[in-house]
Simulated scan of single mutants.
Amino acid sequence: MLLQAVKQVRANPGLSPRTAKLIAGGTPKMAQKLVEEAAEVAIEAVRGDRATTINEAADLLYNLTVLLSELDIDPSDVWAEMARRRERLGMAEKLPKVGKPE
């Protein structure tokens, strides 16, 4: 599991120098990388390049996992929120903003 691998790198940075460098950059660097990867997924999706979109989506999920790990959030907590939304809204979609019409 990716989360466990990230935790192992936290304990032993030599296991993955790239991940260790990202962790050392702190939350701001992790957030920056997450935004960059999200943009790359969007660009490749618009281009219609399925294979590259898959690769960029994997990078996005990796960077999201590193950031969640930094915040001590287990991905299962995110999935629990998705389940809560599905129960409330019929599908796990974005919640409406309070006070704003859809």
Rank of each mutant, 00 (worst) to 15 (best):
M1Y: 06
L3I: 03
L3H: 03
L3F: 04
Q4I: 15
V6Q: 00
K7M: 02
Q8P: 04
Q8R: 05
V9D: 01
R10E: 15
P13W: 00
G14F: 09
G14W: 06
P17H: 00
P17G: 00
R18H: 14
A20T: 03
K21C: 08
I23W: 12
I23S: 12
A24W: 10
G25I: 09
G25S: 11
G25N: 13
G26D: 01
T27M: 07
K29F: 02
K29E: 03
K29C: 04
M30N: 10
A31Y: 06
A31F: 15
A31K: 09
L34A: 07
V35P: 04
V35L: 13
V35H: 09
E36G: 05
E36M: 06
E37K: 15
A38I: 02
A38L: 15
A38C: 11
A38H: 04
A38F: 06
A39V: 14
E40D: 07
E40Y: 05
V41K: 00
A42I: 12
I43R: 07
I43Q: 12
E44A: 14
A45W: 04
A45P: 08
V46N: 10
V46R: 12
R47T: 08
G48P: 03
G48Y: 08
D49W: 11
R50V: 15
R50P: 09
R50D: 15
A51P: 00
A51Q: 15
T52R: 05
T53L: 14
I54G: 11
N55T: 03
N55D: 01
N55I: 02
E56Q: 09
A57Y: 08
A58S: 07
D59Y: 13
L60A: 07
L60N: 02
L60E: 05
L61Q: 14
Y62S: 12
N63K: 09
N63Y: 06
N63I: 02
L64D: 05
L67D: 06
L67K: 09
L67M: 02
L67H: 02
L68G: 04
S69A: 09
S69Y: 10
E70P: 02
E70C: 08
E70Y: 09
E70V: 07
L71E: 12
D72M: 00
D72E: 09
D72G: 07
I73F: 07
I73E: 12
I73R: 05
P75K: 01
P75C: 02
S76M: 13
S76I: 10
D77F: 04
D77N: 07
D77G: 12
V78E: 15
A80H: 08
A80Q: 15
A80E: 13
A80T: 10
E81P: 08
R84W: 01
R84P: 01
R85K: 14
R86M: 04
E87C: 11
E87W: 06
R88V: 04
R88I: 09
L89A: 01
L89G: 01
M91Q: 06
A92Q: 10
E93N: 01
E93Q: 04
E93R: 05
E93M: 03
K94R: 15
V98T: 10
G99D: 12
G99E: 04
G99K: 10
E102R: 05
E102N: 13
